[in-house]
Simulated assay, not measured.
Amino acid sequence: MPRNKNNGAVALFFTGGTICMTPLAEHRGVVPSGEFKRLVAELEPHVGKVGLKPVLWSDLPSPHMTPDHMFRLAMDVKKTLEDPGIIGAVVVHGTDVLVESAFMADLYVNSTKPVVFTGSMRFYSESGYDGIRNLINAVKACMRPLPPATGVVILMADRFFRVREAAKVNSLNVDAFEAPEAGPVGYVAGEMVLLTRSPACLAGPDRTLFEPAALEPATPLVTCYTGMDGFLIDQVRLAGAKGLVLQGFGAGNIPPGAVDAVMRMVDEEKPVVLTTQCLEGGVWPIYAYPGGGDDLEQKGVILGGRLSGAKARLQLMAALGAGRTLSEIKKIFASE
Rank of each mutant, 00 (worst) to 15 (best):
K330R: 15
G300A: 09
H64A: 14
A102I: 07
G291R: 01
K299L: 13
M65P: 09
I154V: 15
G309F: 01
K79L: 10
T80P: 05
A213M: 11
E269Y: 09
G252L: 04
K299C: 11
L12G: 00
E280I: 14
V50P: 01
P180N: 10
G243V: 08
M75R: 14
E328C: 11
R306M: 12
A9K: 06
T118P: 01
V273E: 06
I254R: 02
F177Y: 08
I302Y: 03
T196I: 10
E82P: 06
K113R: 10
E42L: 15
R197N: 09
F103W: 04
G88D: 01
G292P: 02
M121P: 09
V152S: 09
L238H: 14
R3Q: 09
T276E: 03
P63E: 01
L274Y: 02
T118S: 09
A176C: 15
L279A: 13
D83I: 08
G281R: 02
P205C: 07
A149P: 08
A102M: 04
P67D: 10
D130C: 03
V169S: 11
F36R: 01
G323F: 05
Q277V: 11
G248H: 03
R237N: 04
M1V: 12
R3K: 14
D130P: 02
V188Q: 01
V185L: 11
V92K: 00
V193G: 00
V185S: 06
D260E: 13
P199R: 09
G321F: 06
L209I: 11
V47A: 00
E82W: 04
Q235K: 15
G230D: 07
A200Q: 14
D267R: 15
T208G: 05
P148G: 07
L221P: 10
R28M: 10
N6Q: 11
V283F: 00
Q277L: 12
Q315L: 13
G305A: 01
P84K: 04
M265Q: 04
F210E: 06
T80C: 05
A149G: 12
G240N: 05
L244V: 07
G151M: 02
C20K: 03
M65T: 10
K53V: 15
T325I: 11
L215E: 04
G243E: 00
G300Y: 00
P84V: 03
G252P: 07
N6A: 15
T66R: 07
G94S: 03
W57K: 01
G204S: 11
A141M: 14
V50N: 00
N173D: 13
A218Q: 14
